[in-house]
Design a protein around this nucleic acid. Structure first.
Lengths: 226, 226
DNA sequence: GTCTTCACACCTAGGTGTTAAGCT
DNA sequence: AGCTTAACACCTAGGTGTGAAGAC
């Protein structure tokens, strides 16, 4: 498989295994890691649509070690995982088509930030409910900021990052600290149509909303060269 | 009809007609007033359920005159409209059963506050989208605060109030001002089962989710004494 | 050619009033 | 007797991949 083995983003913080990271007393865990691990052997593809498409699997974090009585803002953003544009070639593998330019601008970055709907909330609430980003949508079109739809470019790889901001109790305009958590396993490549049949098979079999397509994909498993 | 003609709550602010109020340069309008006005001739009933029931019609406000670049928090709360407990008697009219006690405590008040999910947001966004409280649910059971379910007592009358807090740009913990808007026409009585068939007829005919009950209620209109 | 969009059938998720049973 | 709950059929709303058409 041709693909950056390690995403080229700096892991700002976090020590631990694939699904658990710790940073200054706060531990974050991928809550639906059993679901994510089904995609261990493929390059996970996420569909971009005009109106916005949910991710599957969802970004779902468990937060441990917050101060229950302090307020926190929680958000995710998306940064390029590799700086390249990819294509899925006739050999059914991802190969580079060149490098992505003009992708890291402030304009792009602004549309790649998604605050969790519960923000800001007390640590108590985050500890109880975690931060489930199931309503997050990704699109290849620009949306108004309040629509809460992330804009990404197709055929590029992205790394989601979780940010936890602890707020000053006396002045919520001021963040006392920011912790960033990067799980390389949640990186993905953007597409407008699934390329790898292994990926679409996984989506069909695991996503309840895709149940109706399950009967059609019985034999596609064997149709792919390995 | 036995019912407090004017709810006994102090209208803290607002001049205008039934559906438009103004307070210190900010104007608020009931966006779905055409819907609400269908209930002009009845005592509007709202169902309380264990898990929480949406209101119908919804509290849907249009906000005019905010500063686009300032941040605002917007929420509704519910206060007693009359201090009495009511019953729907055999003459098909609401009569008092006595006065409600212990209803204005801080404990109750705490569970009767619902921040709009978009709070806090820039004036620009409120001006564009208004404040639609369609996801608000009312229940006769206490819920965890983050579940965002309002707790009310059955067979009592409540007055929803809209509050608009302008936040200090430098310190979002501090509100620069609070404006309160009270629309008496949006007051209602709480029930666990509809009492007045006129009310259930209106709900069935106007709420899209109740469409399946429409065929059954063709003749109930005439069954009620006037 | 290569990527994107649209329309579609088929699901999940969840909001209705009604009816009948349950509770006090 | 009066109020509450549970189960239900029937809706709305909206999330899926697919296959064909569209765009460039």
């Amino acid at each position: 498989i041709q693909y950056g083995d390690q995403p080229k983003i700096t892991v700002i913080s976090g020590i631990g295994n694939d699904w658990v990271l710790e940073c200054e007393g706060v531990k974050v865990q991928i809550k639906n890691r059993l679901l994510w691990s089904n995609f261990d052997n493929v390059i996970t593809e996420m569909i971009l649509s005009k109106d916005g498409r949910r991710m599957f699997p969802t970004l779902n974090y468990e937060l441990i070690g917050l101060d229950p009585s302090r307020r926190y803002a929680v958000y995710v953003d998306f940064v390029l995982a590799s700086g390249e544009i990819w294509k899925y070639d006739s050999n059914q593998s991802w190969t580079s088509k060149g490098s992505a330019i003009n992708e890291g601008s402030n304009y792009h970055r602004k549309h790649r930030i998604y605050f969790h709907p519960d923000s800001t909330a007390y640590g108590k609430v985050w500890l109880k409910n975690g931060a489930d980003f199931s309503k997050l949508k990704v699109s290849n079109h620009i949306h108004k900021q309040w629509e809460k739809v992330i804009t990404l470019s197709s055929m590029q790889t992205y790394q989601p990052r979780l940010h936890v901001i602890e707020l000053n109790p006396l002045n919520r305009s001021i963040g006392l600290s920011r912790r960033t958590f990067v799980f390389p396993k949640t990186a993905f490549i953007t597409v407008t149509l699934y390329q790898d049949t292994d990926v679409s098979d996984l989506k069909v079999n695991l996503n309840p909303f895709a149940k109706s397509s399950r009967n059609k994909s019985l034999s596609s498993e064997s149709s792919k060269r390995r």
